[in-house]
């Protein structure tokens, strides 16, 4: 790190810079071949990325078809996948993944847009609000998860205590099998809405003022202004928030694991937590099959979606 920083602070005499000076040979060779942009600049990154991301991804398509103990593997065809879609515990995780991703990204779009509008308008305490809404994005999921696990305790937790004061009988947030997944999703939104808000704010601010003025002159009210000017013109922001939070939602693990471990039972399991559970239990083939399923799910959703969103962007 210190080397990198040293060479970027602009000094041309620092020792860190001198150490980075190339051996003559490299310069000469590059002079005869592809100019000052040598292909071998790809090499270090390609080795790390190839060995630890690309090759494992390709391997996963084979190992998913095996019964695997790390040391040896036995080819069993599609058995792992059959098991994944026949055992209720695993199937539930598959379904939950989509429910979780759709709910969190939907909520982030709606709340992010609302907060984005609010925080780009003339309002008291705007700087404070921006800071406080964004900060949870930077806090670790495990820390947030533990905090809310305590706050959401059904009998002693502060949330139900506060609801009790209002005369509401609070639900069993994380212990109710029908509710656990949604409670975690709620906390996910709490933690992530700051980023969505920020993206919307950037989108809304970049709309040229002339549009507002033109719409006003035409007698558009606030609602028309929102529907016909602000919302369509901030579409790139919407498309970013949807894509980003869907990808994050489909892959999410940290928060769910910190809050429920997939429980009660397996009612709040998602694919990522199933992968971990099967890994812990030593079913590496099954775990890898989960990985392949997650891979295919992300591909099947994100690729068409980004294409659709991009087309919509052109239309608007």
């Amino acid at each position: 790190m210190s080397q990198t920083i040293g060479s970027t602070t602009g000094s041309t005499t620092g020792s860190a810079v001198r150490r980075a000076r190339p051996p003559r040979r490299a310069g000469d060779r590059a002079g005869t071949r592809p100019g000052p942009y040598p292909g071998w600049f790809y090499l270090p990154a390609a080795i790390v990325y190839g060995a630890l991301f690309l090759i494992p991804t390709l391997l996963s398509f084979y190992f998913a078809l095996t019964r695997w103990t790390i040391f040896d593997s036995e080819f069993i065809g599609l058995e792992n996948f059959a098991q994944f879609f026949s055992e209720p515990a695993l199937t539930r995780g598959f379904v939950n993944t989509f429910v979780y991703a759709v709910i969190t990204s939907g909520a982030k779009v709606v709340l992010g847009l609302g907060l984005g509008l609010l925080l780009t308008s003339r309002i008291l305490g705007r700087g404070y609000l921006r800071a406080v809404i964004f900060f949870p994005v930077l806090v670790s999921s495990v820390g947030v998860g533990i905090t809310f696990q305590v706050l959401m305790n059904p009998t002693k937790g502060a949330i139900n205590a506060a609801l009790g004061v209002l005369g509401i009988d609070g639900p069993g947030w994380l212990v109710d099998p029908a509710l656990a997944l949604f409670s975690v999703a709620l906390v996910d939104v709490w933690k992530g809405v700051g980023l969505a808000t920020l993206i919307y704010m950037a989108g809304i601010v970049s709309i040229p003022k002339e549009y507002h003025e033109a719409a006003r002159v035409d007698g558009a009210g606030s609602w028309r202004l929102f529907r016909d000017v602000v919302f369509p013109l901030s579409w790139p922001a919407t498309s970013t928030v949807i894509t980003l939070s869907l990808i994050g939602g489909l892959r999410s693990f940290d928060l769910i694991w910190a809050m429920t471990r997939g429980g009660p039972g397996f009612t709040s399991d998602v694919i990522a937590s199933v992968i971990y559970k099967q890994y812990q239990a030593g079913f590496y083939g099954l775990s890898t099959a989960g990985n392949v399923i997650l891979f295919l799910a992300v591909t099947a959703i994100v690729l068409p979606l980004t294409r659709f969103l991009a087309r919509k962007e052109v239309e608007l």
Binding site: F53, L59, S60, T288, N291, V298, V302
Partner: peptide, 8 residues
């Protein structure tokens, strides 16, 4: 975009 393949 893609989730990493963990056990491999």
């Amino acid at each position: 975009i893609m989730p990493p393949a963990i056990v491999p």
